[in-house]
């Protein structure tokens, strides 16, 4: 059973590796950021599987923290690194 969980978490890891293509190719910065958000969700899944497979309940707490920090990363990216000129937007309307 534990091998099964390990296999699934390896599959998710491969998933992340495939997703790297979008980071390399992504035409705009938000595309790359989206992939980072996806890593967060996949990372939570992997940690949950590992905690079951290895019998380490502590990893569930790490997963909880990952879920929280994923949101913070996106918020800070949108607010700090992708500012939108609101003034220009208003003059256009």
């Amino acid at each position: 059973m534990n091998d099964f969980y390990l296999a699934v978490s390896a599959f998710l890891l491969v998933n992340i590796l495939v997703g790297l293509v979008r980071i390399l190719r992504g035409p705009t910065p938000p595309d790359r950021m989206l992939m980072a958000q996806m890593f967060g969700t996949t990372g939570v899944g992997i940690l949950l599987l590992l905690s079951e497979a290895m019998g380490l309940p502590v990893l569930r707490d790490v997963a909880l923290l990952f879920a929280l920090l994923g949101a913070l990363a996106t918020v800070s990216f949108v607010r700090r690194y992708w500012p939108v000129e609101f003034a220009e937007e208003e003059s256009k309307e």
Partner: peptide, 16 residues
């Protein structure tokens, strides 16, 4: 954990 992930990703989705 799932509910937390739901809330955060819905918020992140709206922001982006």
């Amino acid at each position: 954990i799932w509910m937390l992930a739901l809330v955060t990703s819905a918020t992140a989705c709206y922001l982006v």
